[in-house]
Nucleic acid binder design. Structure first.
Lengths: 341, 341
DNA sequence: TCTCGTGATGTTAACGCTAACAGAAACCGG
DNA sequence: CCGGTTTCTGTTAGCGTTAACATCACGAGA
């Protein structure tokens, strides 16, 4: 057989031998070190692609102490919100030259988040993004490994890490005010599950607007984000037909469930009841009627969180904790109308 | 200050010193080597959590040549299908003790997929899953680094890798046959974009059933998976009202667009036109009317692909290429009805 | 001409871990 | 009670890279 009998992938020393230089010179070429003669550089480059050499980032990470990998801990990345956020994170990270290692938790609790963070730390990530939309999960950030740069997304504002999130309270304000402006006496709310920070923020904003306007605050229905739970809430609301004229639903999927229930019960939207959702999922525009909703810019959240994290990593120091808020946007469509009188 | 002045994280040697053993013994404890005295083991364990020691998997990977990390290359993980598949992959991988490093491509072409695979290879992943739903992307698998275990998901059946996918052709058959069984003369089709393997499979199954039944094959409309493109297709179809009585739409999101267009044009579903979708996204059950569709078990696809990949990795050999097919499932709901006569 | 700085390269020593071998202690049957 | 096996532990040598320092050649300024 020929000279390369072994199928072992080439290493730096092989390239060096072929190019007639030392392995350190090869390293310098690869890392764009300035002090390399142009001719030497091309000779090395030629050797590199003659051998099909790829550098071993594991070995590199061992000596530099930087893996250029970021860890992401998330929850049910099947949902539109988390999926979009993680996508934004991944894009931003890759643009900055970082890899992303993901752990998607099935259930989200402090222990689970802690384990995930632990694994990622062992694996040598340079920093961690935790998408922690639940209070219990957010608390896990209190016991991060010392010195590990981290950022929370949609998390809690208190504690030892920076947080990036959409302004949920403001979004709920926009939704509720819009309905009040249309002349509705008050606005009902179908909320997300307890313990979810987003659900809490939306409740807070909704309640604040009603209170400020001196309106009665109706009892609240609680769902679990799923269309099915929205459907059940819709059935209840339909039974109270006359009383209810406006509903702010904590996400678009539940709003779809409401729409379905109302259709079945012969309640007309927006003629009898106005509905505002939250998220602006791609489907919302094509509901019947098209859904008025609050858009969250998940991509921006992902990008901002990587900004914050990389600033921490690259400074090497423990920077003061920031709280970045991405504004939500009101999207007017066909599910809301002036209150009937 | 006390004895640990430096904030450098502890290494194996520190544990060894504290436990009064050699670092190798610590390694043996960590790797569950059988030949360690019980008492020594507990002494080491005590030292480990006294110091808060975590092993450095980078160093470990350098010597073992295994990172226990899998690479995943995917495309637009914001869509329900890819998101669910990636979720399934991640779950299965973690259950098997592997990490997952993800690259989400913005646009999917051969060069992009190749780059992604290259990065992952440098990073030292033990194997790669490519979610390659487009012909062009699937072709990138032809030039994988030699000896790199890999599996394609929703990919092409030909070439040098194993493939796991849902049986698209069969799904389309189920949809089309159902409509024919209801007495419709023929079935129209709104397909996915050209070059997508799933779109092609669905067209093939649809056409096969019509041909086999001796029915005319109507002209086909082409969308891009988005609700909006379905909406446009719906407008066209509505204009041909009398002629069209049944439509098989290549995914649920486009079906939603059709539904919206039909509502606007006063076309009643299912009374005037029956519709079958594809995917069974969580929203479909709450469309108006609830959508009859074909369910894809994305989770199963993810799990099977990890099975195949790990078998390759752990055997260490180039196994024969498999083609695993996950059956689709017909879901009857309210958007289809017996043909009007 | 001599020195000194600078640029280009080479040499050596880590990084933190596991593999491979070596040695010591304990156990066994004849 | 002795050779041989088994069980436990230690020592040494890498894995493939970069950092730090050493070396060498060359040209500029005195």
């Amino acid at each position: 057989m020929g000279p390369n009998v072994d199928r072992r992938p080439p290493v730096m020393a092989d390239v060096a031998r072929l190019a007639g230089v030392s392995h350190q010179t090869v390293s310098r070429v690869l890392n764009d070190h300035p002090n390399v003669r142009a001719e030497t550089r091309t000779r090395v480059m030629r050797a590199i692609d003659q051998l099909g050499y790829r550098r071993n980032l594991v070995a590199r990470a061992l000596v530099t102490k930087h893996s250029r990998t970021l860890g992401v801990v998330s929850f049910d990345t099947t949902l539109y919100g988390p999926a979009s956020t993680v996508y934004g994170i991944e894009q931003a990270a890759r643009d900055a030259g970082y890899f992303v290692s993901i752990v998607s938790l099935r259930t989200i609790d402090r222990a689970g988040v802690n384990d995930a963070i632990g694994y990622l730390a062992e694996q040598g990530v340079d920093g961690i993004v935790v998408v922690a939309p639940q209070r219990s999960a957010a608390r896990a950030l209190d016991d991060l490994p010392a010195g590990m740069p981290a950022v929370a997304v949609e998390g809690w504002h208190q504690g030892e890490v920076s947080v990036v999130s959409v302004d949920q309270v403001e979004g709920a304000r926009l939704a509720t005010s819009h309905l009040l402006d249309l002349g509705h006496e008050t606005v009902w709310h179908v909320s997300g599950p307890a313990d979810w920070l987003e659900a809490e923020g939306r409740i807070e904003g909704w309640r604040a607007v009603l209170t400020a306007a001196g309106r009665p605050v109706p009892g609240m229905l609680t769902g679990d984000w799923s269309p099915r739970s929205g459907y059940h809430a819709g059935k209840e609301l339909a039974a109270m037909a006359g009383d209810v004229t406006a509903v702010f639903v904590a996400n678009d999927q539940m709003a779809l469930g409401l729409l379905r229930a109302f259709t079945e019960e012969g309640v007309k939207v927006p003629e009898q009841i106005s509905i505002v959702g939250f998220d602006d999922i791609p489907e919302s525009e094509f509901f019947s009627p098209p859904l008025t909703t609050i858009r969250q810019d998940f991509g921006a959240v992902g990008r901002r969180s990587i900004d914050v994290l990389l600033r921490q990593i690259e400074s090497g120091e423990a920077l003061p904790h920031e709280r970045l808020v991405v504004p939500p946007q009101f999207v007017l469509r066909g599910s809301t109308a002036v209150a009937a009188r």
